[in-house]
């Protein structure tokens, strides 16, 4: 099982690659409000996370997520590793 810090770092790396350069992404970044990504792009980002961590992320879990830290907690809770 990966550590929370490790999961967070990997999510930050993937998200940074996805958003425009001028937005600094941190663990407190609100994934919808602060990144300029629309709701469909966020959903597609989740597909990437499912591959990265070899987990399924149900839609209702995404609905609860606001920040990168929330997302990392959800990924860890769902058994994210690989």
């Amino acid at each position: 099982m990966a550590t929370a810090d490790d999961i967070e770092a990997r999510i930050l790396a993937l998200l940074t690659a996805k958003v425009k350069q001028d937005v600094a992404v941190t663990r407190d970044t609100n994934i919808v409000a602060d990144t300029g990504l629309d709701s469909v792009s966020v959903m597609d980002f989740v597909l990437e996370l499912e591959d990265e961590f070899d987990i399924n992320i149900p839609l209702d879990r995404i609905a609860e997520v606001k920040t990168v830290a929330d997302l990392a907690a959800a990924v860890q809770d769902l058994g994210g590793s690989s």
Partner: peptide, 10 residues
Amino acid sequence: CKMADAETIR
């Protein structure tokens, strides 16, 4: 899917 009791995976 939102209305169903089941989990949804995309």
